[in-house]
Amino acid sequence: MDYLSFFFTALTTLFVIVDPPGNIPMFIALTEKLDKDLVDRISKKAVTIASSILIIFVFGGYAVMEFFRISIESLKVAGGLLLFIVSVDILLGRKTREYYFQKGLESVDVDSIAVFPLALPLYTGPGAITATIVLASEADIVGKIILVLAILVVYGIVRLTHVYSAAIISLLGKSGSDIIARVMAIFLASIGVEYIFDGALSILR
């Protein structure tokens, strides 16, 4: 197994799905009226929860599949379709994410924003979970450790976008963030198609 190639594949896949730059405007809109210390606490909690969920699925995802009697080939096809849908959602202006986002604003408990909608489903949605399970299924124990490293790097970047969110949004502007998100979505769609073909061919064999 080419561990370096696997690391960059995992990093790219998860980065595109989680989309740290594209989610900056949403994070700012959710936290702009809050105290700076509270924003920092929400950021840390959201990143910790989101990354922990994916790490759990790295090592426990296959057990979940066994319990529900789901084959990795079927998961690849379903996951590929899901990733493709997520990419289309991003390209069309994130209508689904905006729906969850607005629901999250109704929460009375400000601290719960870290859990919903930030950690779930914004930063760890079905697409990220599916991709993690598929990647983990292709890896040995060393590969899974590398996958965990890729997850930590991605959510480390998420944390940095929170810390420097105001500076980044002023540099990129709203249109700049949207352009980056849509370009990344094209790569995500390609990854989804690869999953679909790979899974379908395995089933046919």
Rank of each mutant, 00 (worst) to 15 (best):
I129G: 05
F101H: 11
S87Q: 10
S177Y: 01
I191Q: 04
G143W: 13
S175C: 03
A139D: 10
L120Y: 13
V88R: 11
S190T: 13
I146V: 15
I191E: 05
G125A: 03
A167P: 02
L91W: 09
R182W: 03
L120F: 13
L83A: 11
E194K: 13
F116A: 04
R97A: 07
V154A: 03
I145R: 09
V115R: 06
A139F: 09
V183S: 08
L105M: 14
I169D: 13
D140G: 11
L122T: 13
H162M: 14
K95Q: 11
K95V: 10
D140T: 02
L149V: 15
V110K: 14
A136E: 02
L105K: 15
F84V: 15
V115G: 03
I186N: 12
A136R: 08
Y164P: 05
L82D: 06
K174I: 15
V86G: 02
A185N: 09
V115C: 01
V148Q: 07
A189R: 05
D109A: 12
L105F: 02
M184W: 10
E106W: 00
I151W: 06
G156I: 01
S177N: 11
S175G: 00
H162V: 04
Y99R: 08
R97M: 03
I191K: 09
G125K: 09
I90V: 12
A114F: 00
A131L: 03
L82N: 12
A181C: 09
I168C: 06
F187E: 07
A166W: 14
T161R: 01
